[in-house]
Design a protein around this nucleic acid. Structure first.
Ligand SMILES: Nc1nc2c(ncn2[C@H]2C[C@H](O)[C@@H](COP(=O)(O)OP(=O)(O)OP(=O)(O)O)O2)c(=O)[nH]1
Ligand SMILES: [Mg+2]
Ligand SMILES: [Mg+2]
Ligand SMILES: [Zn+2]
Length: 591
DNA sequence: GCCGTTTTCGGCCCGACTGTTTTCAGTCG
């Protein structure tokens, strides 16, 4: 788990990520110290729960105190008290205390693949190794093999682990991982020994970022499949190889895990390998209560050891009295309870989409012409598409001056006449300035079919200002949609500091729409925030923000993210038929 | 450390691969 960036804000307000990391750190040091694995797991579970929370822990505490914190699954009295201490003082005395007996740098060492708490403790106690650099030095100098139970092989593996870590250890975008996975799937499919192959793990759940690539195959000749896998052209190193499971590292440094089972085990294996881990554990606990046991080979009756399911995922879930649960929901965030009570949501699908409400052209910083967008949108089967080039105000490259926007509106009308099969909405993506005001005067804004408003500068402002700018845009009667409401760029920039509770409440009150920007490195609002906003009654525009025609396909990433946020077709406005959308946007109204 | 439609104590998912290993611990999925 990477250490979160330290916020450069004066008024320090601990983020969920920072609290989660501190809990993780405590757990890690306890693990190295040799504490009970269950206690260690408890810390990890609490950390994960807090990282996944859609609301700020600080807000939860402000509103409901200690009791409210304890309603977070995995957080009990003891953890809640630690959180309160962190919120009030910015630090944890438990962590400080642990750091007196163990150097904090040991936590980073556990990120090295193959190095766990036991090895770390012995290397530290017996060789004084406390940092990555010291570990590397000790391994290179042949000092590790002096320890009982360690050998030259151990040193070799440590050095390989360090090298792998240094080459690559960050999570990668779903968008970047998918092509790699598809190539491996295609290559494996070409083997006659392979019957089925599918991506599994976080890829199949369409998580926005991917830690590694997990692939499942079925075969009656597992050995042949493993041989094919280990010798794929992109493989640089085979990390592990057995009859049912192998792991490799690609030249790019990505880890790929392959599991191979027989066809009659495929459903159970797909269920297992799709995860998430928390979802699996929860299912397995349910199974135990029914005197059943689930593993990757099937569902078994504990008394008779007879297999009662396994060929399909449906069978596995059915043994627990559950309907099949879509992979995008399998995060143990209530989907198992919902399934048990027959209230799984009807999820939005790509086919539900009737248009894209955020597209750029060569009038501003995009590349296609308006009529090219029209043709591409027809090709996608859309009923409408909105042209939303940037306004001129904040020095956005290529932003449209008022006169240019007027000319563009005319051109849009003209293209609309040429393409009767689609409706092109005349729009703009205006920038929200430091006072919350947007481009263009009221008259011009009123002539537009659709106004998207975005924050494009001032990401380091304080929470109050960023929140007020956003609220002002929501309250502006000309603004229809607030775009990428947290401003995050995956791998580059965290969400800015903003009071989303207020944003969601205000958007719901004014019946305004928030964007789910489908750019693979934005996906903003993100899954958990979508679900939280939906609970306030907010609706969403799932938009690609395309600057090139190919990017219209980003809609797919928006849709799977919407599913992860438990959204149905009615939660998005771009699933509406044109006439209903027009009514919602006030098109045709005076003013 | 957390948790409870059989529990406030006594459990906590279940298995693969490696090599520290010859009956199992460590690490990882
Ligand atoms: N039952 C069980 N299943 C696990 C456990 N660890 C992992 N799995 C399953 C569920 C995971 O989705 C799947 C793949 O493991 P990964 O470590 O690759 O996790 P995942 O792909 O979900 O996330 P990632 O993006 O790779 O970090 O294996 C575990 O401890 N118990
Ligand atoms: Mg994975
Ligand atoms: Mg994996
Ligand atoms: Zn845009």
């Amino acid at each position: 788990m990477p250490e979160p960036d330290k916020a450069p804000r004066d008024e320090k307000r601990l983020t969920n990520e920072e609290i989660a990391y501190t809990l993780h750190e405590i757990g890690e040091l306890l693990d190295i110290q040799g504490e009970s694995v269950f206690r260690v797991q408890a810390y990890d579970r609490a950390a994960t729960a807090i990282r996944n929370l859609a609301r700020d822990v600080a807000d939860i505490y402000d509103e409901g105190g200690l009791k409210a914190l304890q309603t977070i699954p995995g957080v009990g009295k003891s953890t809640a008290l630690k959180i309160v201490e962190m919120l009030q003082t910015g630090k944890s005395s438990r962590l400080e205390e642990l750091r007196k007996s163990l150097p904090p740098s040991l936590v980073a060492m556990s990120e090295i693949p193959g190095i766990g708490p036991k090895k770390i403790k012995r290397l530290y106690d017996e060789l004084g190794v406390a940092t990555l650099e010291q570990l590397e030095g000790a391994a290179k100098a042949g000092r590790v093999r002096e320890l009982r139970g360690m050998s030259a092989k151990t040193e070799e593996n440590i050095l390989k682990g360090i090298e792998a870590f240094r080459q690559h250890h960050e999570r990668i975008l779903l968008y970047d991982a998918y092509p790699v996975a598809e190539r491996v799937v295609t290559e494996l499919s070409s083997s006659a020994a392979v019957e089925r192959v599918d991506p599994a793990g976080s890829l199949r759940r369409f998580k926005e970022t991917i830690g590694d690539i997990d692939i499942l195959a079925s075969s009656r000749k597992a050995e042949e499949v493993m041989e094919k896998f280990a010798t794929l052209p992109e493989v640089r190193e085979v990390v592990a190889r057995g009859p049912t499971k192998s792991s490799v590292r690609t030249r790019a440094g990505l880890q790929v895990d392959l599991r191979v089972v027989t066809p009659d085990q495929y459903g159970a294996a797909l269920q297992y390998f799709t995860g998430s881990k928390a979802h699996n554990i929860h299912l397995r606990e349910l199974a135990k209560k029914r005197n059943l046991k689930i593993n990757e080979y099937g569902v078994f009756d504990v008394e008779t050891d007879k297999r009662v399911a396994g060929a399909t995922e449906e069978e596995v879930y059915a043994q627990l009295g559950l309907p099949w649960i879509p992979p995008t929901l399998r995060e143990d965030k209530g989907e198992i309870e919902a399934a048990a009570e027959g209230r799984l949501p009807k999820l939005i699908q790509l086919e539900d989409v009737r248009g894209d409400l955020h597209v750029h052209t060569n009038w501003s910083d995009g590349s296609p012409k308006i009529d090219e967008v029209a043709e591409a949108a027809i090709e996608l089967g859309y009923e409408y598409v909105a042209i939303t080039d940037h306004g001129y105000k904040l020095g956005i490259t290529g932003g449209l001056e008022p006169s240019e926007l007027e000319r563009q509106i005319k051109e849009t009308e003209e293209v609309n006449r040429r393409y009767p099969r689609i409706t092109i909405l005349a729009g703009s993506e205006v920038s929200i300035d430091n006072e919350g005001k947007v481009d263009f005067d009221d008259d011009l804004l009123a002539r537009l079919d659709i106004v998207n408003a975005s924050i494009h500068a001032g990401f380091n402002q304080d929470r109050k200002q960023l929140t007020e700018r956003t609220l002002a845009a929501i309250e502006n009667p000309h603004v229809d949609i607030v775009c990428h409401p947290t401003g995050r760029l995956l791998g580059r920039r965290d969400a800015y500091d903003i009071d989303l509770d207020e944003v969601f409440k205000t958007a719901a009150k004014h019946k305004k729409v928030l964007e789910l920007n489908a750019w693979p490195n934005r996906l903003d609002l993100k899954d958990d925030y979508l679900r939280e906003a939906k609970s306030h009654g907010v609706r969403f525009a799932i938009s690609t923000d395309s600057h090139r025609l190919e990017e219209l396909h980003f809609m797919f990433y928006g849709i799977v993210t919407a599913q992860r946020g438990w959204l149905g077709p009615d939660d998005a406005i771009n699933t509406l038929p044109l006439d209903e959308l027009k009514r919602l946007l006030g098109i045709g109204d005076v003013g």
